[in-house]
Design a protein around this nucleic acid. Sequence first.
RNA 1: GCCGAUGUGGCGAAAUGGCAGACGCACCGGACUUAAAAUCCGUUGGGAUUCACCUCCCGUGCCGGUUCGAGUCCGGCCAUCGGCACCA
Length: 852
Amino acid sequence: MSSDRRKPFPFDVFEPQWQAYWEENATFRVANPGEPGFDPSRPKYYVLDMFPYPSGAGLHVGHPEGYTATDIIGRFKRMNGYNVLHPMGWDSFGLPAEQYAIKTGQHPAVTTAQNVARFKAQLKKIGFGYDWSREIATSDPDYYQWTQWIFLKLYNTWFNPATHKAEPIATYTGPDPDHVRLAYVSEAPVNWCPELGTVLANEEVIDGKSEVGGFPVERRPMRQWMLRITAFAQRLIDELEGLDWPTSIKLLQQNWIGRSEGAEVHFKLADGEQQLTVFTTRPDTLFGATYMVVAPEHRIVDQITTEEQWPQVREYREKTARKSDLERTELAKEKSGVFTGAYAINPVNGEKIPIWVADYVLLGYGTGAIMAVPAHDERDFEFATKFGLPINVVVQAPGKSAEESRGFCEHGTAINSGFLDGLPTAEAKAKMGAWLEERRLGKLSINFKLRDWLFSRQRYWGEPFPIVWENGQHRAISESELPLTPPDLADFKPTGTPEPPLSKATDWVRYSETATRELNTMPQWAGSCWYYLRYCDPTNRERFVSEAAERYWMGGGKPGGVDLYVGGTEHAVLHLLYARFWHKVLFDLGYVSTPEPFQRLVNQGLIMGEDGQKMSKSRGNVVNPDDVIAEYGADALRLYEMFMGPLEQSKPWSMTGVEGVSRFLARVWRLVMQENQAGEWEMGPLSAEAALDKSQLRVVHATIKKVGEDIEALSFNTAIAQMMVYVNTFTGITPRPVTALRTLLILLNPFAPHLTEELWMRLGSKFAGFERLAADQPWPKYDAALLVEDEIEVPIQVNGKVRDRLVVSKDADKSTLEAAALASPKVQEFTSGKEIKKIVVVPGKLVNIVAV
RNA sequence: GCCGAUGUGGCGAAAUGGCAGACGCACCGGACUUAAAAUCCGUUGGGAUUCACCUCCCGUGCCGGUUCGAGUCCGGCCAUCGGCACCA
């Protein structure tokens, strides 16, 4: 890289100067309601980036893509008279810092601070207009004090099914509040990862391996903190509706929550008083249930398995327990299972049907037991075929015989089903539901795939729980004891057992004579669940956010508070779902004023390497923004990131493309400046008097219109293309009309803030109308009257093919156009000998003559 | 298997149902220069015809439909990418 090569414009000189200016003058600082400098007459605009985890690797060119987009929007809104909240911070708790600490013995707080400093310096070099006075870090005690405070709210809150809302636990009148808290303790089997020395959420396990590091994960029962997100499942689906999110992301969340309508059905066991409850989406097929299956881990297996079958059942259970999730899915091709020896009675026809154990039934979904209808369910069919169980057809496919309907899993007509016979599936479901309910054999019900959120981690570098244990009971510590800081540890190594590293700090663990502290820490998701609220009032010591600040920045009459949220698709489900959940709890409790956190969501696409592959160290195709800035400048980096293509699309990096936009910026520079004999830059031939001709005026106003509209639509690439047209229009003109330059600098300012401020200042030294900063100017207005051309070229088509073009007045009416078209010799050539059937005239657009 | 997104020149891309390829890259040609770089101007989807101008034909993954007119709308397929995946 020839960084000492002569620069096409001196960005290396003026970019750092402007960055320093913005910092010294706090140009992008925005005041809160009640603070000096706050202008209540302006509307608010809250534009947010997904804050980064400050890794040791520094920024790569993927980061600035979304950040540049929000920066352009923020600066644009500011020029349009908004109070713009555009903050940045750090998701700074997390596993990599802790693993680095284990390797090197350096405290995670130290490495985190270093990484944050590096990230911040890199971001500043790109010239983003963040309000740095609002910077936050989730690992900062002033911040996580409130993360812990929100946890206490969750702990002291329950979901009232009657009001469909979260309410203070005091309103719960049942026997044991511990059973309904939104934060509760569970002994359920969890994903234990020995390598990482921690348990993981279901969402952090991919194909039986940890998402971080790809280590094997096994299931074992442990005492864990859970958050009752499932209580909000329905609302998390319903309240997506009012949000301006991509439909694909809404669908992703809906599928993740996985609502299905069906029925619970109670099956009495053939022997004894017990019953087995199943969930089914097809209660209409109950007459076809020929056997039942329970998950191997299901508690009832111990009670119902006959002595004769016990050895086989036990062996099967042990085998499936040993299998990791990965093996379980890998072996899914072949169904397996064992008969328990027990039978149940089908409530609808009194038939005795066998109960099997099989790992294709999952303990965590529904009731962990199913009724098998092999004729109309693929999995049951496969299983029944393998083990020779009966297959009874009870739904007839449209246009097929009963025998042909075997294996038909869609909606049809009930047959062989007693009182349901002849009913279409939907009606049969409803009738069966009523029938079951009448006899107390079951009821229609709704099930969700979503599970409660496993909220504890056996880690050091995370928020400690504000909980102590006494006599086997948990209780919350007082809010006045927050923040609860983790102890200073010298040894961060996992204990090798599920005992968390905090257990090593014996003094810290001992809370009182009789009480000890909770040893788990919160997952990384916790801090990012509410950071957008803290930005509104980041230094408040009395409250997580003041009411006034929250109401102003998060309000606005829409369901979501943040006006625009930009980030990667990788957070489409987890982060966005968790944050919505917390927000709803805070909303129900009256702490925030909207039911949703994020009104408009946009996912930026991945930036690939020049080879079209995903950027990765191992491929050696990673582009470092620092190198790009050194060679082409921050403005070129920003502009290229936006010029590559639509924001949402993934696209490959191209250094020659960067060179292209860099050339464009150099042309802008040379519109104002020129090189003298000595090779120094001086102002070129400019004229404050020169008037623009009609076509130049049209370009100016068309550009004002297009750039403004395109920024609103986040179509930055076409906005830049239009500004290139603008520059090309004026490049050949001497002297350059200053008025046209002035407009250009304002339009280009959000994209290339350094260059435009520099030229703005230089022009201001010689011409009037360049007060303050370019960034302080109001966004220009366009005159629609100047956009229309007097004479337009209209294509004349014959049978849909362009045969001629005529220049006519823009107001030419239908008959004029028609006559002109028919008079065209070219048209006559193509219509001669044919009959003109029809003439389509769209005034101002085209003429199409249909001739046969 | 299910859900979603995408498919347009050599490349990144653009186009309220109305002139496909704006803008940029790359290539080629010209000007400037002793020369090169930089800069400025111009050409460039494919094919046929022509000395040339002109002109014509084909062309937005594939097949079909709606329409005076389809990259755009509808139906069916194919490919690539992303997500979910025994969810009863």
